[in-house]
Structures are given as structure tokens and as C-alpha cells.
Write a protein that binds this DNA or RNA. Sequence first.
RNA 1: CGGGGAGUAGCGCAGCCUGGUAGCGCACUACACUGGGGGUGUAGGGGCCGCAGGUUCGAAUCCUGUCUCUCCGACCA
Length: 434
Amino acid sequence: MRMSRYFLPTLKENPAEAQIASHRLMLRAGMVRQGAAGIYSWLPLGLRVLKKIEQIVREEQDRAGALEVLMPTIQSADLWSESGRYDDYGKEMLRITDRHGREMLYGPTNEELITDIFRREVKSYRDLPKNLYHIQWKFRDEIRPRFGVMRGREFLMKDAYSFDLTAEDGVKSYNAMFVAYLRTFARMGLTAIPMRADTGPIGGDLSHEFLIIAETGESEVFFHNKFNDMSDNFKVSGDHATIVAEWTEPYAATEEMHDEDSCSVAEGELVRGRGIEVGHIFFFGDKYSKPLNAVVQGPEGPPSAVQMGSYGIGVSRLVGGIIEASHDDNGIIWPEAVAPFKVGLMNLGPKKEDCVEFCDKLYADLEAAGVEVLYDDRKDGAGAKFANMDLIGLPWQVAVGPRGLKNGVVEVKNRATGEKRELTPEAFLAEMAA
RNA sequence: CGGGGAGUAGCGCAGCCUGGUAGCGCACUACACUGGGGGUGUAGGGGCCGCAGGUUCGAAUCCUGUCUCUCCGACCA
């Protein structure tokens, strides 16, 4: 993509309303713009990141055997009355009345709707297990939205729902999702630690939150330093139960769940940090299937309510979360897997014909090799280009100027490490295409 | 929802107390110079001073109401 044709409204100064790094950087890097409190428009650069994260989530859900569906954002209040949550959910739920006076709502979650879909169609244990998910916008009318997309009112969430005949099978489905989550966050270059969690309003008795570690995290967390190692050398093998056991064995707790007295981790091994919740999984048995009468015929005859779990990932929150975990004073540092572009190509001699030609060719070659590249072909000064490129945080920067051109080399910088090397364009191309 | 702060150009802000031609920096446009870390100069464009009402000869400024944004707390993917 040529920057001269792109829509990338970057800001030199910090917008007054943005307090934390990710919010500030997302506004400055031209990723999002606020519409109303906690509601954002996604501009091209931000949308690319959102889509990448969404796709990783999708691939890992598919790999785990979940099936993608798409449920609407607007739901009828009837179902929620049936489950009893229409009154319980309170003011967080955005309620809407249609022209006929029917009560509707903008879905904050989808347990009721998915259970309804399931119960209409599935009557036999032979059709189990099933796990259905979708990636859809949700709305929760937070009392106080803040931190940009990290706690917006409208947010993109992946939510999956598992259906099993027995609690034992239900736990298997839970474990499969647990492992899928580990893989998902690892692919995004995050250290995500599963922590035993309170089940809150969703209910149930088995639940884990996944938190990514970042200095600016919202809640204080305590965990065994083994996790750093497990995350750095991420590998999962064996059956799901074994993996889950492995990842739940070391101590890890959020502020609310942490108890100094019962915490047996040695002082030197306990890490005290801050975390951002990016995923939450629950196994809640028949909490919704019973009131909503989602039953299947069992092998022995009598029908029984299905055993369910639900599994959320905050997709839009992850965009902010990743930035919180990965940035410096100059801007964002994207992990390659979610970077909007892999390479940022800068023409430092935009008025020199040979330099333009050289850059145009390198750009075309990169594109032809399937490398995602953002090409700064504008007539700005070099300083502005460097600063802008650091701000938007593409993993690889390649500067082409008259200086290097004389020797037939380009200067390549790794955004994360700051390491700079001079390479021939051929060598650079080969490295990027690999 | 309780307690603070703020709405003036795309962004960051001054002006308000003490009413009288709406300003500054960045960004934007044109031209020239510059050209490896947000460069320099000259000349420009851009405002229902959040909205409504009131006081006044006259309101960005004073008064009343209202909407919005934001920070701290309780709640949440």
C-alpha cells in the first residue's frame, strides 16, 4: 500500500482524552476515532489489526473443532425473560423498543440465543458434542467506559458455546477450549496466564480467566515465575487434560482470588505484576439449558438438560492489550502475527528520480513476493517518515536513501530490537519473503 | 450512580475573573529553500466560542437550564 493513497491520519500530539498508552497510540497512529463514549470507528490501519486478531482466533477455534455461526446483534427480550436474566442484567443492557412496541435489546452476550438455536434443532445425544461460536459486536452500557477500546461499550468478542450430554464430557469441551486459548494468545506473541476465576453473573463452577501481563494492566496479579518460561518457550503436547493440568498447576491468581496465607510459592519465585483480562471461559452445566429446556434424549431413554460451557475472547480489547504489552516511547511495537503490515518502506529521497525508481521497484517486488508492505512514498522529510514509522510500529522498517543507494544497499531496522543492518535489496527481499 | 475537571479551527491550548474587532502552536494550502530522526522562510485558508434561553446598547466572557466528553470510586470481555 502506498501511503500517498492510504488513509492514515496520524497525530503528532497526544489527544487530551487519552490517558493510557494504548488509547493514546491508537488515536495517534490513526487506528481508531471515537464516535461516542466507549464507541469507536475503526480506520484502515486499526481494522487490519482487528482482522488479523480475529483471524487467529477463528483459526484456533476451527482447529479445536468449534463451528462458526453468526448471530444478530439485536435480540428479542422474550428469551431473556425466559432465562430470568432480563431483569437480572440491569442497566448494563441496552434496551430498545421497536416500532410495534416490542422490547428488544442489543446483545451483551449470547447464551440465551445460542441455547434457543440449539434446543430447536438438537434432540438426540447422538448429535453431541457440539461447539458453536461467533465473532460479533456486543454492547454493554458500562457505567464508565475508559481506556479506549480496552473498555468500550461496544466491543468485538468471540464467544463460543459448548453442548455435551454429561458433565464429564462438558469438562472435555472446556479443556479443548482452554488449550485453544493457550495457542491463540501464544500466536499473538502474548504471555497469557490462565487464572482460576470467579464465575460472576454467568454462573457455574469451573472458570478461568486469561490475563496478559502488561505494566498498565487493570488488576494486580500474582503468579509463579514458571509461567514466564512456559510462555517464552511455548509448547503444548499431550492430551487436553494433561495440558490443562500443566498450565493450572503453578500458582496464579488475580487480586480478588489471591490469598497471601494459602499461597505456597516461595518469595523469590512469586511474580507480582499487572494483567489485562483478554479471555474468560466457563463451564456452567445446566444453568441455561434447564430454564430454557434444552434437552436431548440420552442413550438410556429419558431426556436430560445438556451440559454447557461458554468461552469468550475480547477481540477488540486485544488490540489495546497487545499495545499495552508492546510499545515504547516512540510508538507501537507490533508482534509480527498481528502487525497491520510486515514492512514499512521509506523513500528518503522522494525528489531524486533514481531513488524513486529504486523504491518503486522494491515495493513492487515485495508485493509480488506476497509481503505486506506500507510504502511511504510521500514527499515529507526523512525525520517525519522515521517518526511516523516508529509510531505505527511495523515490525520491519527499510529506509532507502541516496546515501545507501550509492553502495547499492538499504538500511533495515527491526522495530522491536532497534537493530539496524545494511543489506542488498535482494538479500532483504529474500529475508522478508521467507 | 457519587465526587472532581472540561467543552473556543482537524489536534493541543490561551482569552472568561474585570463584557467592546476571536487568538497562539501544530496540522492544512501555495511557493521557495532544505532533505538520514517530526527542518526554514514568505504568503494564505479555515470558527453558529457545545446547545437553548436570559441580562445588556453590546455576551466566548455574566446568569439559568441542558447536552456531551473526561478523571477518581463501585461494576465488567
